[in-house]
């Protein structure tokens, strides 16, 4: 089988991953972030493919940041899948659709956000200004991954952009609200990590027995709502 390295007409790059998966990269390689217009089309592609999982023999449909991974079952021809996606892509439009807005109540600072003072100092703003900058805006769920229910949230205030901690923590508590680079996130489960923890939420992001199993879905808008004081 042959998978072309790129489609010059659409600037979509397609690569084979292992024997049964294709990676479509839609955002320009020069971008350090996936443009929201591109990501919206990836969400639409997901919504379009999801109901066809069985018909198309798709084992996994994984939106990433500006890209999409498709894993096919043995009986599916990758060339067919590639043609399908590349034909669909130009037909999608990036217009904003009204999605859900999920509010996440957050205890900022204190023992709930042990890095808040460091972050405020590094960013040269006061703690109340930091809380305001983090909570007074809407983020989009670009994609989910890393842990079940872990959302890659884009749209962090430029004043809060910081590199990761030099020494990652061995264990970040579930519910930690953290920032790093141009992103913010909530940790659904305990995990090691190098992000700066500025707050904590009691909201559950992943419950295997519930439907849907994750609180946040791709395309959702998220707002953090400060709760007075720490717990």
């Amino acid at each position: 089988m042959s998978i072309p390295a790129s489609d010059p007409q659409q600037d979509v790059r397609v690569s084979l991953v292992g024997e049964d998966a294709l990676l479509f990269v839609f955002s320009p390689i020069t971008e350090s972030e996936a443009p929201l217009e591109v990501q919206r089309r990836i969400w639409q592609l997901y919504e379009w493919l999801d109901p066809q999982r069985d018909a198309l023999g798709l084992l996994e449909i994984v939106p990433g940041m500006g890209n999409l991974l498709l894993r096919a079952s043995q009986k599916t021809l990758l060339n067919t899948l590639q043609d399908l996606v590349l034909t669909r892509w130009p037909q999608l439009n990036a217009t904003e659709t009204e999605g859900r807005t999920i509010e996440i109540p957050v205890y900022y600072g204190g023992s709930d956000g042990p890095d808040i003072e460091y972050v405020a100092e590094q960013c040269g703003i006061s703690i109340p200004a930091l809380i305001d900058a983090h909570s007074n805006r809407s983020y989009r769920v670009y994609c989910l991954g890393f842990q079940p229910g872990f959302a890659y949230l884009g749209g962090l205030d430029k004043r809060l952009v910081l590199p990761r901690r030099e020494t990652p923590r061995l264990a970040i508590a579930p519910g930690s609200v953290a920032i790093a680079g141009k992103q913010t996130a909530i940790y659904p489960s305990e995990s090691p990590g190098g992000w700066h923890i500025i707050g904590h939420t009691e909201v559950s992001l992943f419950t295997p027995s519930k439907s849907p199993i994750t609180l946040l879905q791709i395309g959702d808008s998220v707002r953090f709502v400060p709760i007075g004081g720490t717990k």
Binding site: V25, E33, E60, G64, G66, N67, L69
Partner: peptide, 12 residues
Amino acid sequence: VNLLSSGVLPGD
């Protein structure tokens, strides 16, 4: 290079 995060699979 600074790659944007994408889906990965066992075996990668």
